[in-house]
């Protein structure tokens, strides 16, 4: 989907569905998914279809994914760290619908 040119800065390695991806510090987990070329970062809870990050700025919630074992993280707002594990997600995480 996206690629890093050879001269782009990259100092962090993360694992997207087990595959290593080199990235710059400050980039997001959602960017890692797009660089890894993953076909889908979540299956949609309503139609089961494939989805990938859409807005990259915290608006659309298409980037919900499993990060370091935690489901339902908004990948475009989570900065990468060395050794981060990113997995696609199925359906909806356990979210609190109503105010406390």
């Amino acid at each position: 989907m996206f690629r890093k040119p050879p001269d782009a800065p990259a100092g962090v390695t993360v694992f997207v569905a087990g595959q290593p991806v080199r990235m710059a510090a400050g980039e997001s987990a959602a960017a890692a998914v797009l660089l890894a070329g993953l076909g889908s970062s979540r299956s949609h809870p309503v139609d089961g279809g494939a989805r990938l990050p859409y807005c990259m700025m915290g608006v659309c919630f298409e980037c919900l994914m499993v990060i370091d074992g935690a489901p339902g993280r908004q990948g475009c707002l989570v900065p990468v760290h060395e050794g981060m594990r990113i997995e696609p997600m199925a359906g909806l995480p356990d979210l609190a619908g109503a105010p406390p």
Binding site: M1, A8, A24, S28, L34, A50, C55, M56, M57
Partner: peptide, 18 residues
Amino acid sequence: PGVLTVGAAQILLKSGGN
């Protein structure tokens, strides 16, 4: 998948040169 906003692609370019 593969449809994004221009802003999203600009963020990918600005933060990582992607």
